[in-house]
Amino acid sequence: MAAHSDPHYDGLGHHISPVRVYWLVFAALLVFTGLTYAVSFAKLGPASLPVAMLVACIKATLVCTFFMHLKYDERFNLLVFVSSLFFMAVFFGFTMLDVASRALVDPIEGYGVYEQYNPPAAPAEAAPAEAAPAADEAPAAGH
């Protein structure tokens, strides 16, 4: 309807990204997916979760910036979206503060949830517990 002289903007004056950008972002996403998949086979131990989350965050940022157009959108929409992450962090943070610290201040009264499931005597039993999964791979008969 509206004649648009500038190919970078549509009839409402919003930015139009070149097709090439979308495919480049897609390629980057594939690379990161491959990376996170490959890394999952490397035994990184406690570092594996932060690495996986870092990669996921980079991927999410790419999707938000280019596919969801946050780069060219009104700044306020970015604030709106980031605020949801903030309040999610509040929810996680305070709840974990409680769950993780129930036994901290008063170890007798506040016998922690974590300790209930993971008795303090763990060091002695740690080795069998580690080995158990491998041994149990064959379905236990009669269960």
């Binding site: 996170t36 998949y37 890394v39 999952s40 131990g45 979760l49 996921a56």
Partner: peptide
């Protein structure tokens, strides 16, 4: 894209645990 975003996090959290 949001549905995609959720999956981007679900995939490593559920499938790629170490």
């Amino acid at each position: 894209h949001l549905v995609d975003l959720v999956w981007i996090f679900l995939f490593p959290l559920l499938y790629l645990i170490h």
